[in-house]
Each structure stands twice: as structure tokens, then as C-alpha cells.
Simulated scan of single mutants.
Amino acid sequence: MSLFLGKIHYWLFNKILWFENIEECVITLALEEGMDVKNIRNEIESKYGKKLENRNLEEIIDLENIHGWLQNRIHSSEARLAAWIKIILQNDLDAQIKLEKIFQEQGVLAAREAKIEIDYISATDIYNSINNYILDGMPCDRVNVVSVSEENLVSWKRRICVHEEIWSKEGVDVRFFYNLRNIWIKNFVKELNNNFEYLEEPLGEYKILKKN
């Protein structure tokens, strides 16, 4: 490990890689829809940059600007996804169901990957594992505020939204993104430990709760 890089930087790097896996699934959907993927990809990448290179983090990161490099990559990956989703929805009004299926499947795959490491027997375990995958800006953004952290319940609220500007720029309602992500989380939790469930409560409260 580089002397300049810590675990948190590799943690963020892996989250970006997983997000880019979802992007590739969405691009595959665009291809199946008969869209001109090559030209669309070039257009999107000209605006937001390319995916991460298939190299180790220490080989590609700007060591003189670690925070800025990671922040830019997070923004770039989410902006590309928003652009792809906008184009797909414009091309096929029924594509929402297909996009939801992608996020459902990716939530299950992520949970299966996570279960290889440890058994997830508490709400806290599950909440922490969710945050090993989803992107919510940088840790310093402090997006989520946890109010309860117990064995059978974790409850939190979103303090700020770091996604709306990105999705609005592409003309997509950020609520569409949150719906896709909620589908991902619900299926992730179900696959990780079916004794728990993910709930979106009124007034912006979210819970990982053990079933009765």
C-alpha cells in the first residue's frame, strides 16, 4: 500500500468500481435497445470523462490531490450513469422496469459478494455493508445522520442531497435515482439476511429493521 493512501481511499475506490459495474449493465441495456452505444458513449465521455482504468489505485490516482481526484471520479461516474439513463428513457418509455431489474439484480449480486467475507447478523452489520457499496459523495459530506444504532435496528436520515445537481443537469428527477437505489438496497438487505428489511419511512427516515 502506498504511504500516501489509506484504507478509506481504497474503500472509496472500490465503491466507484461497483457503481461503474452498474453503469456497464445500463450500457448493455442500451445496446439491447438498439441504440448507437459507441457514439453515445463518446458523447457522454466527452462531457464527464471515461471510466476508471483497469489498473491499481496507486497507479492512476493523483497523489498530490487524492481527495480531489476521488471526488471528481465519484461525480464523473454518477453523471455518466444519469446521462445513460436519460437517453434510455427517452428512447423507451417502458425502460423504467428494465432499469429497476438491473438495480434489483445488482443488489443481490453485491450481497452475495459481501456474504463471502462475514455473516451479517445485526442491523449495524447490514447498514455498514450497504455503505461499502453505495455512493453518497465523500465521507466529509456527512450525508447520513444515524439516530439509532442497535442490534435489531438502525435508523437514519439524509442530512443533505449530493445527487440532485448531477441528475437535474441531465434532466432526470433525482427521485428516479433514489427509487432505483431503494430497490438496490431492499434486495441487498433481503439477500444478505432475510431476517431484516429495509424501510423508507415518512419524513425522510430510513431503517434497517429485524422482522418480527
Rank of each mutant, 00 (worst) to 15 (best):
R142P: 03
S147R: 09
I85N: 06
N54I: 04
P139T: 02
A82C: 08
L57I: 02
S155H: 05
N144G: 02
E43G: 13
R142E: 15
D92M: 00
S76C: 07
E105K: 14
E105D: 14
D125P: 06
L99V: 01
D119S: 10
I102H: 09
N132C: 04
N132W: 05
S129N: 07
E58Y: 07
D125G: 01
L70C: 08
L63Q: 11
E53R: 04
A95K: 04
I85D: 09
N65L: 05
I130Q: 03
R73T: 11
L81K: 14
E113M: 00
L99C: 07
R55E: 05
N152H: 03
N91Q: 15
D94W: 09
G68S: 06
E43C: 09
Q104R: 13
A82F: 10
C140W: 12
I74Q: 06
D125Q: 04
D119T: 06
I118P: 00
I121V: 09
P139K: 06
A110R: 08
D62H: 04
V146H: 11
I116L: 01
M138G: 08
I102S: 10
S147M: 06
S155R: 15
V154N: 02
H67V: 12
W69S: 10
N152D: 10
S155K: 11
L63C: 11
I61K: 01
Y127K: 09
L89A: 10
P139E: 07
E53P: 04
R55Y: 01
L52P: 08
A123N: 04
S77A: 15
I97N: 10
I97K: 14
K101S: 09
E151P: 00
D125T: 03
S122A: 06
E53H: 01
E59H: 10
S122E: 02
